[in-house]
Amino acid sequence: MSLKERMDSLKSKHAFLDTQLHQEGLRPSPSAEEIGRLKREKLKIKDEIARLDGNGGSATIH
């Protein structure tokens, strides 16, 4: 897998987790545990994107 393919894959996973996080927030009783898990996973992916991008954490993903 090339670096570009890996970055694209990570960005796609990040967007998917963002959607899941939004959906969880729309539930009548959102799970704080699930929200925390999703946020931690998003941060882990964002950190990996920044590391691969070589800019030490200033990736453009939010």
Rank of each mutant, 00 (worst) to 15 (best):
E48M: 02
L52F: 01
H62Q: 08
A15Q: 15
D47R: 14
K44W: 02
K42H: 00
S31E: 06
L21A: 09
E41W: 12
K13S: 01
A15E: 14
K11G: 09
P30G: 01
S31I: 15
E24G: 02
L38R: 08
R40C: 01
L17E: 03
S2N: 10
Q23C: 06
I45L: 08
G25F: 00
H62G: 10
L43K: 10
D47A: 13
Q20N: 14
E33T: 04
H14N: 06
M7E: 10
E5I: 11
L26V: 03
M7Q: 00
G57M: 07
L38C: 00
R40H: 11
D47S: 05
S9C: 12
R37A: 13
D8E: 00
G57E: 04
K46G: 08
D53A: 14
S31A: 11
D47H: 04
K39V: 11
M1C: 12
G36W: 11
E48I: 07
E34C: 04
P28D: 11
D18L: 12
N55M: 02
T19C: 01
L43E: 13
E34P: 06
L3N: 13
G57D: 02
L38Q: 05
L26K: 05
S12M: 11
F16R: 06
P28R: 12
K42M: 07
A59F: 09
G25C: 05
S12T: 09
P30E: 10
A59Q: 10
L26D: 06
R27D: 00
L3Q: 12
R37C: 03
D53W: 07
D18F: 13
S31R: 01
K4A: 15
G56A: 00
E48N: 06
Q23A: 08
S31K: 01
E33P: 03
K4R: 08
R51N: 05
T60V: 14
T19S: 13
L38D: 10
E48A: 08
S2A: 13
T19I: 09
S2R: 13
N55K: 11
I61K: 05
K46M: 02
I49N: 02
K39F: 08
T60A: 10
I49K: 09
R27C: 05
I49D: 05
K4N: 05
D8A: 12
L17V: 06
Q20A: 06
H62R: 01
I61N: 02
R27L: 15
E48G: 01
K39R: 15
S2K: 01
Q23V: 05
E5L: 02
E41N: 09
Q20C: 14
K13V: 07
G56Q: 15
S29I: 14
D53H: 03
M1N: 04
L17H: 07
S58E: 07
R6L: 03
